[in-house]
């Protein structure tokens, strides 16, 4: 259809591309989770949870 879809179509059928994608997605998920639980971010994020309660309605 277009060079972009063709390229995606071809690479999506390559085993190693799928393997790399899986690892990349898993890594970003684990990384993001670690980031959220990192002590320095923890406090800030817990504070952010109070945002809806700050304002008078």
């Amino acid at each position: 259809m277009s060079p972009v879809t063709d390229a995606v179509a071809q690479s999506a059928q390559l085993g190693w591309v799928l393997g790399v994608m899986t690892v990349a997605f898993l890594t970003s998920f684990v990384g993001w989770t670690l980031w959220a639980w990192w002590p320095s971010n923890r406090e800030r994020l817990d504070a952010a949870a109070l945002l809806p309660l700050e304002e008078s309605p």
Binding site: W32, T33, A36, L45, D46, A48, L53
Partner: peptide
Amino acid sequence: LPRAAQRPVFSYRLSIIHFWA
């Protein structure tokens, strides 16, 4: 829900993680 329950969401960290997932 936090407004109705008058307390913050149980885990803000969980909320941002399950968002991306």
